Each structure stands twice: as C-alpha cells, then as structure tokens.
Amino acid sequence: MNPTSLAAIVTGGGSGLGAATAHALAAKGAKVAVLDVNMDTAKATAEQIGGIAISCDVTDPASVEAAIAQARAAHGVARICVNCAGVATPGKVVGRKGPLALENFARVVQINLIGTFNVMRLAAADMLTLDPLENGERGVVVNTASIAAFDGQIGQCAYAASKGGVASLSLPAAREFAPAGIRVVAVAPGYFGTPMVLGMPTEIIEGLVASTLFPHRLGDPAEYAKMVMAIVDNAMLNGTTIRLDGAVRMPPG
C-alpha cells in the first residue's frame, strides 16, 4: 500500500515510537492524525509533520469514537492505523508490600491490550466502508506488542500479559478481515530509546545496552517506524508478530 495521500491515525503519536511513525508516514505523503492523551506532545508532533493533533484516551470508547470521527472529518477514513499507545508499569505478583494491587494489573491491561483492541475495532469498522485499492486492500492495522510477550521478566506480569494479548490478536483479526482486504500485523520491539526507557535510572539503561547483541545499543524509534512502513508497503505481511529486537532475549530479571 502506497501511503501517499492516504489518511492515517497513530495512537500514542505524541512521543517515542508513535511520533517516529507519524513522521515517517507524513514523509511519504500520508495525512496523519496524531492521537494522544498528552495534547502538548501531540500538538508538537502534528505541527512538525503538518498533521492534526487529537485528544484520545484509548481506554474510553466514547473518546476513541470521537477521535476517529474528528480524524475522518479532517482527512477522510483512515486506511492506516498504527497503535503505539501504552504503559510499562512494573510490579511483582507478590512484592514486599504483599500482592500486587489488582487495579494496577488491570490498568496496564486496560491501556495496552483493551485500548489497542478498542482502537482497532473502530478503525477497522471505518475501513470496511471503503472501496478496495487496485490490489484489493482496504486498510492495514499495525499494533505494538513487545518482546516481553515472549520473554517477560520478573515484575513484568501485567506488561507481558497485555503485550502477549496484543500479539495474539494479530492472527484471528487478520483472518476475520482477510475477505475485506484489511491486514493486521503486530511489531514486538526490544529495547528502544523511547521516553519510557530513557526515563529509567542510568544504571538500568546501561544494563539494557550491555545485554544487547547486534546492534549493541538501544533501538532508534525511527527503526520501528521503518518496520511500520515496510508493513504498510508489503501486502504479504499479515496475521503475524514481527520481533524487532536485534536478537536480544530478556533474562528472567
């Protein structure tokens, strides 16, 4: 799919992987709507790429419906949907203060998994109203999983469970939408230099870098964006989860 002149929505588009993806899509001529709960960062990204910033809480059905409607009114129905909104709140199942508060586990799952599904279901419903392109495609959804879905560490039960769910969504959703020409793919990044990671203590960041293989560094969000662009371009990428991790495998903790 050639993104030129096509409408695209990117959740979590104000920073990190989402911002890099918004930049990459706009550079190829897509009309990008940057969706984020943080309007300051969303506006900054949108101004840089000539897109629009829209307030969106992915956990709230009404908020997502309104955001997609606003994007549709500005750019038309989005053929490209990239879900990058997420959190990585750590917590052991049973820590020094006792069992993990259930609401803490639920919040991570609500944002990462249910939020991703919430946006995907509404974006796909819109895509189904479109005429197919010359190759039969109507749209593509790219969801952000994590290598924690497969290598979850101690203290990552909520995060790993939520990202495992995102990875598992790919195949059944792709199968459902295949007759309509809508693809669904997940990307599972390893250690990337996002605000989420760069906000960690220096010793933790140094430990992450030390465990990488090749490239021996944190991933650049622009490299995630390149993968998204490859997925958009290649119609054979469908119903799968792609690890983007430089061959790193996370240790138990």
Rank of each mutant, 00 (worst) to 15 (best):
N2H: 06
A8C: 12
I9K: 12
I9C: 11
G16M: 09
G18R: 09
A19G: 02
A20L: 08
T21N: 05
A22W: 10
A27R: 15
A27K: 15
K28R: 15
K31T: 08
V32L: 07
L35Y: 09
D40K: 12
D40E: 14
T41H: 06
A42R: 12
K43G: 08
T45W: 06
A46V: 02
A46I: 08
E47A: 06
I49W: 10
I54L: 11
D57T: 09
D57N: 14
V58P: 03
V58S: 02
T59I: 04
T59A: 00
A62Y: 03
A62N: 09
A69C: 13
A71K: 10
R72W: 08
R72P: 03
A73I: 08
H75M: 02
A85K: 11
G86S: 10
G86H: 13
V87N: 05
G91K: 12
V94M: 14
G98Q: 13
L100K: 15
L100I: 13
A101E: 13
A106N: 15
T116H: 01
L122D: 14
A123C: 11
A123H: 09
A123N: 09
A124L: 07
A125T: 02
A125H: 06
L130V: 11
L130F: 06
G136Y: 08
R138I: 14
N143I: 09
A145E: 06
I147E: 10
I147D: 05
A148V: 05
A149T: 02
A149E: 10
F150V: 07
G155Q: 01
Y159F: 14
Y159H: 11
A161G: 01
V166L: 02
A167P: 02
A167H: 03
S170L: 09
P172W: 00
A173L: 14
R175I: 09
E176Y: 13
A178Y: 03
P179F: 05
G181I: 02
V184M: 06
A186P: 04
P189G: 01
G193F: 03
P195L: 01
V197G: 01
V197M: 09
L198N: 01
E203I: 06
I205A: 00
E206S: 04
G207S: 10
A210P: 07
A210M: 11
S211Y: 03
H216P: 02
H216Q: 12
H216S: 05
G219N: 12
G219T: 11
G219C: 10
D220H: 12
P221N: 08
M229D: 13
D233M: 03
D233H: 07
A235L: 14
A235Q: 14
M236S: 07
T241A: 03
I242N: 03
I242L: 13
D245G: 00
